[in-house]
Amino acid sequence: MTSEQELIAQLKNKQTQENAFRILMGQYKERLYWHIRKIVVSHADADDVLQNTFVKIYRNIDKFKGESKLYSWMYRIATNESITFINKRAKQNNVDISEYQHNLAETLQDDVHFSGSEIQLILQKAIATLPEKQQLVFKMKYFDEMKYNDMSEILETSVGALKASYFHAVKKIEKIITAH
């Protein structure tokens, strides 16, 4: 039995559940946080979504059948929670999701938890112009250098479609940042 399978077994056992869950959080909190942060942008929102993600993982661990890697399953939950979160926020602000993300990028320079240079700000604004799915693909590949096979499991999209999506995203962003 691998350490991941052992951990899953402990997570499903009521007596060992809490301790195993603390171990799981310790292993994945930073990776999941940065994945979420790149989608929702602000630290406060990322903190909210990360906690909700872990709560969902804890509540649904019995439904995890091991058909994909635990890591992919958790990333999928984190991605869905982040997308649901920004959709909800956009709805609350009476704007569509692309306008909401554009506004987020525009106000990023005032964020106390952002210390990026001007070119990093331009890059964030350029990413915000992409369609939602393309943004996800770009962030996962460009910043996290995630493998296409893992991305395919998380986003439930074929490797070919992901490669095409990343290629288009790169071309668009390069055009925007070169113009500045």
């Binding site: 210390s115 290629f167 390069e174």
Partner: peptide, 18 residues
């Protein structure tokens, strides 16, 4: 394909945490 983006790759996102 994207020389400018390739140059920026070594930089981080600029996001910080408390």
């Amino acid at each position: 394909i994207a020389p400018k983006l390739s140059e920026l790759k070594s930089m981080k996102t600029g996001f910080e945490i408390p």
